[in-house]
Amino acid sequence: MPSDSRAHSSSPAATPAAAGFAPFFARARAAGRPALIPYITAGDPTLEASRAIALALAEAGADIIELGIPFSDPVADGPVIQRASERALRQGVTLEHVLALAAEIRRRSPVGLLLFGYVNPFLRLGWGRFAQAAAAAGVQGVLATDLIPEEAAEYRQALAQRGLEPVFLAAPTSPDARLAAIAAASRGFLYAVSRTGVTGAREQVPPGARDLVARIRRHTTLPIALGFGLSTATQVEEVGRFADGAVVGTALVAAVHAAVQRDGPGAAAPAAAKFLRSLRG
C-alpha cells in the first residue's frame, strides 16, 4: 500500500476503513514528509461547500481530513473554530448530516477521514448507531475531544466492533503513566497537543512539543501527529523532523472563511486548496 505517488484521484479503495490510518502515514513517511492533516468544520459555510473543500484538500495533497462536527459548547476551541461551529449550527447541521457528508466524500476520494467532535452529539445518537453509521460512511477513525480513555470503554468497544480507530489526545500536562494509557487506548495514531490551551494559530511551534512527542514514543510505535497552533509550511516542515503528521485547523478555517466573506461560498474550495498547497512549501 505505501506508495510515493500522490495518486489521490485514482480509483477509490473498496474498503477504505479496513486498513485504518496506517497507510496514510506510511505513504507520507516514504515521501520524507509529515502526513498533512487539515481540519475543517463540517457545514461551514455550507455542507455542500464542505464537500467541495474536502475534495479540493484531498486533491491538493491532504493525507487525512479531520471533519469537525459542530457543537454548541466547544470548550477546547479558540474563537475562530467556535465561530465556524456557530455558522454551521445556524444552518442546522447535525452529526447525521456530517456522517452523510463523510460518505459523499468517501464516494469520490480515498483520502483519510477522521471525525472530530465533542462527546454529547455522539452520545445522543448512541455509540452503537454512531459507530455503525461512521463505518458505513467509510471513515477510518474518530477523535472525541472531551473523552479520555478512562471514560471511553463503551466508545472503544463500539468503534472496535466496526473496525474504526479511536484517536486520543496526549497533552503536555499528561504524565508518563497517562501517556502509556493513552497509547494503549489509541489505534491508528495519537494526536499530540502542542501546548496547553485551545485551538488557534501561533507563530512558533512550542519548544515543549518535541519533548512531548519523544515522551509519547516511549509508549507506542503508532504514528504521532502534532496539532494546535500550526499554520505555516515552515512549521509543518519543523514538525516533520520529530512527528509523523501535522494538523492544521484554525488557519485553514480562517482562510476559507475570509475567501467566502469576500467572494461567496464558491470561493471556499479554491481557497482551501490554495492554503493546503502553501503548507507543502
Partner: peptide, 20 residues
C-alpha cells in the same frame, strides 16, 4: 473514586485538564 454518583458524573474534559 472516578467521580460517579450512580451512572452520573465522571470527567469529560480535554486531556490537558486531566492532570490539573
Amino acid at each position: 473514586p472516578h467521580g460517579r454518583f450512580g451512572p452520573y458524573g465522571g470527567r469529560y474534559v480535554p486531556e490537558t485538564l486531566v492532570e490539573p
